[in-house]
Design a protein around this nucleic acid. Sequence first.
RNA 1: GCCGGGUUGGCGAAACAGGUAUACGCAAUGGAUUCAAAAUCCAUCGUCCGAAAGGGCAUGCGGGUUCGAUUCCCGCACCCGGCACCA
Length: 925
Amino acid sequence: MTSTDTPAASGPDAAHRYTADLASDIEARWQDRWEAEGTFHAPNPVGDLARPGQGELPSEKQFILDMFPYPSGAGLHVGHPLGYIATDVVGRYKRMLGLNVLHALGYDAFGLPAEIYAVETGRHPRETTLENIGTMRQQLRRLGLAHDDRRSFATIDPGFVKWTQWIFLQIFNSWFDPELKKARPISELIEKLGTDDPSVIDEYRLAYIKDSPVNWCPGLGTVLANEEVTADGRSERGNFPVFKRNLRQWQMRITAYADRLLDDLDGLDWPEPVKLMQRNWIGRSHGASVVFDAGVAPIEVFTTRPDTLFGATYMVLSPEHPLVDTLTTAEQSAAVGAYRAQAASKSDVERQESREKTGVFTGAHATNPVNGQQIPIYVADYVLMGYGTGAIMAVPAHDERDWEFAQVFDLPTPRVISADRDGGGELPWTGAGVLVNSANDEVSLDGLEVEEAKERIIAWLESKGLGTGTTTYRLRDWLFSRQRYWGEPFPIVFDEDGRAIALPESMLPVDLPEVPDYSPRTFDADDTTSEPEPPLSRVQEWVNVELDLGDGLKKYRRETNTMPNWAGSSWYEIRYTDPHNDAALADPVNERYWLGPRNSGGGESDPGGTDLYVGGVEHAVLHLLYARFWHKVLFDLGHVSGSEPFRKLFNQGYIQAYAYTDERGAYVPAADVVEEAGADGVVTWTYEGKPVKREYGKMGKSLKNVVTPDEMYEAYGADTFRLYEMSMGPLDVSRPWETRAVVGSQRFLQRVWRLVVDEDSGVGSVSDELASDELRQALHKTIDAVRTEMDGMRFNTAIAKLIELTNQVTKAEMRPREVIEPLVLMLAPFAPHIAEELWSRLGHPETLAYQPFPTADPAFLVEESVTCVVQVQGKVRARLEVSPAVSEADLTALALAEPNVQRALDGKEPRRVIVRAPKLVNVVV
RNA sequence: GCCGGGUUGGCGAAACAGGUAUACGCAAUGGAUUCAAAAUCCAUCGUCCGAAAGGGCAUGCGGGUUCGAUUCCCGCACCCGGCACCA
C-alpha cells in the first residue's frame, strides 16, 4: 500500500504544508504580480522612466550594480547567482529603509566564445547569444530578483553599441593636457598648436594607432592572449606555433591617467587587496633615465637605482630593442640574430618563468658616464621591451637578476653599497646601506644613504646633461583592437592617404555586416610573413564606402578590426541610469541623480559612482581599471558628473565543489558518489562500489559536478535556495556547495510558515494578544542585531539571528502578531516570496517591498542581568549572574566567594584581581 | 620567484575594539509521536580522564607580548587566488 491512495488529514500530506510545490506556486504568483504591478520600477528624475505628477523622488537613492554576466551556452550553475542574490538582498533591504533603489541586470554579450561557436556551427553569434540570454533570463527570473527589468540591455543592442562607438569617438577626439592633467577636446589642441596637420595632431589623441607586439598564430589566423599561449610557445587551441609580431593596432592612452588612477584609489570604499593590486599594476616608480654613450648611438636606460651607477658593469638590451642591429658588430651578428629569433619564438610566460639567464654579447661597448669605464653590451630576454626603455644598466652586486646573469657570463660584480658598519652583507645585496666606491672627480656618493645618493647623482647627471630624474609606470597603454567579428566595429574610416577619420555621430551606430564566414583566414602554421585578415576585411562592399564627410562624396575604407570585449563593460553602469535615451549616453539629470557625487556638505569630496558594485576578484585589475579610465575621460569632457564609476566595491567568494576521479583519472558523476566514514574515522568515497579520489575546485560540465539552480527550484523552491546561499558563510569567502545541507534552510522557512498558517486547515494562527516581555525583548534584540549585520553585509549571521528568534517563538507556543509581523518583514530580503505570502495572509493587501524595515526600541535592549565570567590565572572557574550596574568591589567579593574559585586558589593569596565589570573578573596569584 | 588571502568540531561556519572558543545550520546518536515510515517535537553532540562534581588538552605548527591571544608580533608548514625576471 502506498500513501498516494487517500490523503491523510495530517502528516506529510497536510494540505497547507510549505513544500517545494507550494513554494513554487507562491513564487510564480508573486513574480507575476511584481511584474504586472511594476513593483521594482525605480523612477528617474526625468525622461521616459520618470513618474511625473507623483511627487518628489525619495531624497536618498541607492544604485546597486552586479558585474553583469556573459551569456554562455553552458547555462547557470548554483555558483553563478550568489552575487545576484546578495545584491538583491541589499536592494530589498535598502528599499525597506526608504531609498529609491536602482537595480537591474544587463548582459555582456560580445565575446570570443560566441564567435568560436559561430565558426564551428555557422550560426550567427547574435542568434545564439540572444538564445543564451533568453535561457539565462528564465533561470534568473525564478530567483525572484527585484530588478527594474525596463533597464535591462545587452551590449550588442544597436542602441547600446551606438554609445560605445560614440565614447570611442570622444576618446579619439581628445588629448591629455599635462598641465591641467585632464582630457580636452582635440579642437583645443589644434587651436593651441596653431596646426591641424594630422601627423602632429594624431600623436596626441587618447585613441591612436601604433605598431604593437602581439602573439600571432598563423595556424589559427588570430592573435592570442598570453593565457591562450602555452609555455612552449604554441596555441592552446590546435597546438600551432605562436610568434611575437608587431601589428598596427589601436591603443588607448590609459598611461596618461596613471597618476589619477593611482591617487584616486584613496577615496574609494574598495577592499584593500584590490586597491593594492591596482597600485602594483600601475606600478609608479621614481628613478632616473641615464644616457650611455655607445659610440654609434646613445642608449637611454631607466633605473630605479641611480645611486648604484658606479657599480654598473655591463648593459642589457631587450631582444626587441631597435638599436640591437645598429650596435651589433659583424662578428657577433649571426649569434645575435639567432638569439633574437629564439626569443621571438618564446611566449611571454616562458620568458618570465625561466630562471636560467640567457643572453648574447653584441660585441659593442658603452661608456659608464660616471667613471668612464667601457662596459660590454648584451642582449638578453630577461629585459622586456614593454617596461622603461627596454634597456638596462646592470648592477650585479645589487640586483638579483643582474647577479645571476653576471654569474653565467662571468662579469665583474663590484660592491657599491655596504650593508652595515662592518662593510659586509652578502652579495647580491638589495637592501639598505651606505654607498662605497662611488666617487669621481666631480661627485662623491660615498657615505650617503641610498635615498640621499639618488638625489645627489640625479642632480649631477642633470647638470651634465647625462640624465634626468623620472617617473616610470609599469602600466602600458591599452591595446584596443581585435581581429575578430563579434565585437563593436570602430566608427572610423581611412581616406586614400590612409589617415584615420572619425565618422560623425549621425552615422552611428556602425552595424556589423553579414559575413559568409565567421572564421579568420588561416595560414601555414610556420608562415611568419603572414598577417591577420579579420573576417570584416573580406566583406568588400562594406569595407569600401563612398561618404560625404563634409567635403563632398569621397571613397573611404572602413576599419576592419573590432573593439575588445572590455569596451561595453567600461561604461555600462552609466546606461542603467537612462537605458532608452537616444540623444545621449544618459540624460545628465538622470546620470547625476544616480551616479553623481554626494554633496556631503564639505570636507572630503565624493567621487560619485554606484553605491555598491559586487563581483569576483578576478576583475580586480583589467575591467575595473578600464572602466575607471573611461569614466575619467567622460568626466573630463563633461559627460558624467563624478570622477569614479564605482564608489564601493565588494568581492564575493566563489561557490566551489568537489569532483571525483576513478582509478583511470576520469571524472565520475559527483552526485552519485557515496561517502562513508570508516570505524577509524577515515572518510572514503566510492562510485558504483569502486573507490574514487576527491578533488576540490570549480563547478564544470567536464568535472561532472554541476548542480543547477533549476534542480534547487524543483526540490526546494527559490526562497530556500536563496536563503541557503546567503546563510552558508560570509559572502566574500569561497566555500564548497553541499546539496544535503540545503534542507536546513527549508526547515527554517517551514517553521516560519507554521507560525502563521496551520498546515492542516490553512487557517491563520496568529494572535493579537501582546507578547510576553521575554519574547518582546528577544524580538527587539533580534531587530537590532539583524540591522547591524545587514548593514555590514554579513547575511549568514543575520539569518542565524532570525532562526534563533523563530525557534524561540515556536517554543513559546504563542504567536503574537507583534512579533510575527516584524519577523516576516526581516525575512523578506532573503525569502521575498514566502514573506509576501505570509504578509498577505496576515491581512495586508499591499506588497511588503516598501514596508519600513522593523526598528528596535532601545527600551527593550536593556539587559536585566549579565553573565560574569570569573577566571583564575586566565582560566574560567565560575560564572555569576549579576546586575549590569554591579560595582567592581561587589563583583570582586562575589567572585572570590565562589567555592570553585577558592578551590582553584588552593589557599594562595590573590596577588592581583583584574575586574572588567560587569563581564569579567580575573584573579592572578 | 614575487604579491595578496587563508588554515577553528565529522562538515559549512560563529566570536562587533585582546575578555565565556565552537552561535546558527548539516550530519550523527537517543527519546516522544506513529501499526510502521516520513514529517514534527525533545535531548545529546570538540577531545581525553571521571560514576559525578570537576579537571587536563584543544582555533595549522613553534615562539613572543599580556592578568588574559582564534584576535597583536616574529618564524615555519600547507592550501587558495593573482602575476610582472618591472630594473
